[in-house]
Computed example of a mutant assay.
Amino acid sequence: MRVAVLFIDGVGIGRKDPAVNPLAHREHLLSRFQDAAGPPLPDGGRFLPVDTTFGVAGRPQSASNQTAILTGDPAPALLGRHILGYPNAPLRGLMADRSIVKRLAAAGRTSTFANAYPAPYLDALGVPRRPSTSPPEFVVPPESRRKMRPSAAKLAFAAGGVPLRTLDDARAADGLTHDITGAAARAYGLPAPERTPEEAAAIFWHVASGADFTFFEHYLADEAGHAQDLTAALGALDTFDAFTRSVVATRPPGARVLVCSDHGNVEDLSTRGHTLHPVPVLYFGPPSTEVDAFSTVADVGRAVLGWLGAE
C-alpha cells in the first residue's frame, strides 16, 4: 500500500465571502466553507472538517500542530499551549521519540520527503541530506546559522534517519521545490527547474514509487495570509490546487492520498493572525473507517501509521 500526504500550511474553513476569503473566488478542492457547500470532489474524494485547537486556549500554531500531524499525538494538549514557528525543545523531544517516520521505519516501512532544498540550507539546519555534487548555492554566515531552526517536517524525517533531497534531486526530476513550479526559488537566484503543476505531480508519483509513505509540504498560502495579500494567496492556492488535482487524477490503484493543513489563516484576510477555524482534510482512496473517525489534525498521522501497520 502507498500513502501520500500533501500538506498546505494555513488553510482553514471560513465564510464564503470573497471580500476576505480567496477560496471563495475559485472552486478549489480546498474551497470549503462554514456557510455554503463546496464544489464536488473528484475520484470519490471525501471532505472532513477537523479541529486544530485540541481544547487548548489561544490560536493554533505551526510548530505544535505540525508536530501533531507528524507524530499522531495531540502535541498542544501534551504541552498545554500552542507553539509558533519552529518546534521548541519539548516538541523536538516528542518528534525524536514519536515521529511517524521513525515509527514506520521500526515497522519495516519506508518514507520519503518529496521536497528538495539547497544543500547549504540543510547543512545549516544540521539535518541529514542526500549527496550533492553541485557547487554550494550560497554560504550561510555563522550569525545566521545560529538563528536557523528546522521545521517539524524536517525533524520528523531526521528522526527516522531519512536524508532530505537537495536541488540536485529537483533538477534530476527526483524532487520538488516547495512552491511546486520552482518560480519562488528562481526568484531568489537559485538554480531550480521550471515545472508546471502537472509535471510536478508526475514527479511526485515518481518519488512516491520508491516508498510506502511520501510527504510534501507547501507553505506559501500561510505566508500570503500573514501578509493579507489576496494576489499572492490566489497564486499559491491556484498552483497547489492544480498540482493536487493532477496528483489525484494520476493516483495509482490502491494508493491513499490525504490533503491537510495545520491551522486556519488564508481563509480570512481581514486579519494577519491564525484563526480558530477547523481545517479541511481531503481523502482520496479506498474506503476507510479511520477517515470516518477523524476529529483533529493529529488523526492524519495516526491514519498513516494504521494503514501501514505501525500503530
Score class of each variant (00 low, 15 high):
159 A>D: 05
149 R>N: 06
162 V>W: 04
148 M>L: 15
142 P>T: 08
142 P>L: 08
182 G>S: 10
171 R>T: 14
131 P>F: 08
154 K>S: 07
184 A>Y: 10
120 P>C: 12
134 S>T: 13
151 S>R: 01
145 R>A: 15
136 P>S: 06
165 R>P: 02
177 T>M: 12
119 A>C: 10
135 P>N: 10
178 H>Q: 09
163 P>H: 06
137 E>G: 08
159 A>C: 01
167 L>C: 06
120 P>T: 12
146 R>K: 15
183 A>E: 14
159 A>Y: 01
186 R>C: 13
147 K>Y: 11
172 A>D: 15
183 A>N: 11
118 P>L: 09
141 P>G: 08
127 V>I: 07
174 D>Q: 15
119 A>M: 06
181 T>E: 12
151 S>Q: 08
139 V>M: 10
155 L>Q: 03
128 P>L: 06
142 P>G: 13
140 V>S: 13
118 P>K: 03
123 D>R: 13
167 L>W: 03
170 A>Q: 07
149 R>W: 04
158 A>W: 02
130 R>F: 03
155 L>H: 00
153 A>Y: 01
166 T>Q: 00
147 K>F: 12
152 A>M: 05
153 A>G: 02
165 R>E: 03
118 P>Q: 07
140 V>Y: 08
156 A>C: 05
158 A>I: 00
165 R>G: 04
163 P>T: 04
161 G>Y: 03
147 K>H: 13
186 R>M: 09
125 L>G: 00
